[in-house]
Design a protein around this nucleic acid. Structure first.
Lengths: 217, 217
DNA sequence: CGGGTCGCTGTGAGGCCGCTGAGGAGAATC
DNA sequence: GATTCTCCTCAGCGGCCTCACAGCGACCCG
């Protein structure tokens, strides 16, 4: 098993390298974002341990670019607890697991093994249906590369539909999942918001299946 | 995919159970810490959703004990925002992800999926009879790969018949299952809809067995 | 061959479903 | 405090679906 560690604090990097080698892994270390990205692209690694704070290119940016190039190398992200970024950002941008410093070495090892066992993720982080793209990390939607401004509810609705492209999704299912399950909202609200969405993403893209629900083409 | 939900607020627990079941997960619910811990140990689950505030044993304690016993079941932790504990505690004690209440269902699902990193979603079975195909998820019917547009009633009728290919299905049986059993509809309605179907899927595919019913070839 | 039963289909009315514009309540922003 | 934005309800409307009805054809019997 070949591992890539990208970490600029040399003491931590060295500790990781030594520890992981003792576990039987082959470990290479890079200390900057660009160098890490390049190594990840071409090194044939089985997983990468990636710090967030890196010179040249942040860990987030490294993962994002990797994923954009369709590299699905498992990534375990490390970050300081009090950083400006938080865990959700890390997961959203395409990392597979996340650890906040300080972390226990045993936990790191366990997470790493879990990651390797599961293998490369198959799911891209940016949802794409036709010329529609939805980027959860940036909470951004584009249609033919033109940005579309959506309200919270519209976004949640589109998000849900884009995760099930081509499938018919019933109004009650949408109410349960996109709307707060506890409140009971009239099914008409769904129709209203489907209407709003259609105006923004194109009328024909969101089919009505009478008596059954809606389908994103 | 088998999930364990440990949550003592029964309303939330039920909402989660129902929602996740609708997603295709097998979901078991426990409402106390000790019961949750025990189920997690022996239940063969793929992931656990765990509330922090629990009677008997806190969520933190549950994870800690699990990890101490070398159980690496993925755990998604839930907690109230204003609790005495914070997110770092949850992650430090071994949870894999953390969500503060109130949370959006969509976010929960996204995190859960990230946790499971499951492969391609298994499609529900597509019914096939001859060159007829019916995809329940997409609510789509094709005949020799050409899409056939069906109304709700037509679709329900074809669905029922395609689940019993080659068998003779009586009109009363169809009335009971395809039509609302409470209303009493004239048997002629079946004849009418068989007629509609025949026009759309081909005349010869749906035989009349005089005095007995219909048979899909 | 003729009568009776069963099934098919064109017609049309009624109703349900979904769409939309208007507007009010509440939150966010200035 | 005013304005804007967002969410959601409501009511009206338009269209498609559903289904009863009746006439006709097909099939089965003596």
């Amino acid at each position: 098993m070949r591992l890539l560690v990208v970490e600029d604090e040399s003491r931590l990097a060295f500790a990781l390298q030594r520890g992981l080698q003792a576990e039987g892994f082959a470990v290479d270390v890079e200390s900057t974002g660009p160098a890490g990205l390049d190594a990840a692209r071409h090194g044939g690694y089985d997983a990468m341990i990636l710090d967030v704070m890196l010179p040249g290119l942040s860990g987030y940016e490294v993962v994002r670019r990797l994923r954009a190039e369709e590299h699905w190398l498992p990534v375990l992200m490390l970050s300081a607890k009090d950083g400006e970024y938080d865990q959700a950002d890390g997961l959203d941008c395409g990392a597979d697991d996340y650890l906040t410093k300080p972390f226990s070495y045993v936990v790191l090892l366990a997470r790493l093994r879990a990651l390797l066992r599961r293998g490369a993720p198959e799911r891209p982080t940016v949802l794409t249906v036709g010329d529609l793209r939805l980027d959860p990390a940036r909470r951004r939607v584009t249609r033919a590369d033109v940005e579309v401004a959506l309200t919270t509810r519209e976004y949640a609705l589109l998000d849900y539909l884009m995760r099930r492209p081509g499938e018919v999704v019933s109004k009650t299912e949408l109410l349960d999942h996109v709307w707060d399950a506890s409140l009971d909202t009239a099914p008409n609200a769904v129709e209203v918001y489907v209407g709003y969405l259609r105006r923004k993403i194109g009328r024909d893209r969101l089919e009505t299946v009478r008596g059954a629900g809606y389908r994103l083409a």
